[in-house]
Design a protein around this nucleic acid. Structure first.
Length: 425
RNA sequence: GGAGGGGUGGCUGAGUGGUUGAAAGCGGCGGUCUUGAAAACCGUUGAGCGUUUGCGCGUUCCGGGGGUUCGAAUCCCUCCCCCUCCGCCA
């Protein structure tokens, strides 16, 4: 959600920034609406003033028993009501139109975001680890182990689901536990257990609604299944005024995520890369206006640390203007090396959203002793997507004989197991 | 799912149509007093929006939305949430 006052101040700059995201100029249309809206407000307020004054006098006259005077005043303001309703209707309609228009516009990129149309214009920031060659994709490895079962999953739920068994099921759980422990013990995130079913307002607050409803699952009685814990963790502060001294707030959660993948027909149809349901550890920060960019760097490092400790090679990409998500001002993607695909694939996306979500959620903070409130700035990032991490572990740790070594840091979470696939492993 | 009771400022809680944005208390802030602190006393203390260079002025908000009325925290409709009892249930 954008601040209409900021657009009014410099509509050309707004349009220019939007152009880099592939959004055609729209400031002028909104300013027309805004003018109409403000004129209606002024008119309505003027009418209200006159009505309030008259009403007060009527009350006084009645209090003194002067019914004739009261009646005279009532006749005098009789016409006001209709006028007022008209002005209020204009105000309501224009306000709704303006809000709707503003809600459909993506966030503004920061100045240092590379301009480009799509992922080809993304910029590599750094690399870590040495990629190795591989032959097998994760589903081949998993199926050979007899622990990754897409057929049974299809019988239960259709495509884009998986059943994991035995050591792979446990590996999935181990990964989630390892990640969340790292973030709460070493990086100061507060663990949170959350609903996965939420109402419209929450999904609107983080920006998935109203534009991206088709990407979400919805229950028959109107709940949305959260596509990411970003939704719930960020909305933790909605409609509140937080004491600035309490910032930054850092939340993490391990949750199931649900995505319809409506626009992804034919992409990554095999395997666990793109599922309707997957687990993810999410990292959300609520910060003040000054700390957002530094927090983005910090959060990115928190996510990278997971890959470092798992000894998985990866690179950090900065997304260009055209490839960033709707609510983001600046985004880093972490791409893990997948030997089976001979490619880097996204495993985390860390974004700074400015006050875009704070405004939509009406989430504010205030410095002690100051009257002024400010919208909170928000950041979110995966730390990491557990399903894709499992994929990466399989492809990077598979041995010649088809067994899979368990990364050192996960062994305590696996009951000491070192190799998956050996006899009863 | 059935029946009933509620949602008022940071908190507790009055207020059932007329200077009520809202009594009172608590909490917060400032001051008097004090070597300092406490106590006591005095003052002050909600969030938006519009307008203005600014002081300010105006306006809206008593869970959300709509309605009745010259006038709504107060009456009506509707939705949401919370609580109690019953039913069901991990």
């Amino acid at each position: 959600m954008h601040d209409i006052n900021a657009i009014r101040k410099d509509p050309d700059a707004f349009d220019a920034a939007m152009a880099t995201r592939g959004v055609s100029s729209c400031a002028a249309d909104m300013l027309v609406l805004d003018d109409k809206r403000r004129a209606a407000i002024a008119e309505a307020q003027d009418l209200q003033t006159r009505r309030n004054e008259a009403s007060k006098k009527i009350g006084q006259a009645k209090g003194q028993g002067d019914d004739a005077e009261a009646q005279r005043l009532m006749d005098e303001v009789a016409g006001l009501k209709e006028e007022l309703q008209k002005a209020e209707e204009v105000e309501r309609v224009t306000n709704a139109e303006l809000t709707e228009a503003l809600a459909a516009i993506p966030n503004l990129p920061l100045d240092d975001v590379p301009v480009g149309q799509d992922e080809d214009a993304n910029v590599e920031i750094r690399r870590h680890g040495k990629p190795r060659e591989g032959k097998a994709e994760h589903f081949e490895i998993g199926e050979a182990l007899g622990m990754m079962d897409f057929e049974t999953a299809a019988a239960l739920s259709g495509s884009r689901f998986v059943v994991l068994r035995d050591a792979l099921a446990r590996l999935d759980r181990a990964l989630g536990n390892f990640m969340i422990d790292l973030h709460i013990n070493e990086f100061g995130y507060r663990e949170t257990a959350l609903p996965v079913l939420v109402r419209d307002d929450a999904v609107y607050g983080t920006g998935q609604l109203p534009k991206f409803a088709e990407d979400l699952f919805r229950t028959e009685n109107g709940y949305w299944l959260t596509p990411t814990a970003e939704v719930t963790l960020t909305n933790l502060v909605r409609e509140q005024i937080t004491d600035a001294a309490a910032l930054p707030l850092r939340f993490t959660a391990l949750t199931q995520c649900f995505r319809s993948e409506a626009g992804a027909a034919g992409r990554d149809t095999r395997g666990m890369i793109r599922q309707h349901q997957f687990t993810k550890v999410e990292l959300v920060s609520i910060v003040d206006a000054e700390s957002g960019e530094a927090e983005l760097e910090r959060k990115t490092q928190c996510a990278e640390e997971v890959l470092k400790r798992l000894e998985l090679p990866y690179r950090v990409m900065q997304l260009c203007t055209g490839d960033m998500g709707f609510g983001a001002r600046k985004t880093y993607d972490l791409e893990v090396w997948l030997p089976g695909q001979n490619a880097y694939r996204e495993i985390s996306s860390v974004s700074y959203c400015g006050d875009f979500q704070g405004r939509r959620m009406n989430a504010r903070y205030r410095h002690e002793g100051e009257k002024q409130t400010h919208f909170v700035h928000t950041l979110n990032g995966s730390g990491l997507a557990v399903g894709r991490t499992l994929v990466a572990v399989l492809e990077n740790y598979v041995n010649e004989d088809g067994t899979v070594s368990v990364p050192e840091v996960l062994r305590p979470y696996m009951g000491g197991l070192e190799i998956i696939g050996e006899t009863n492993g």
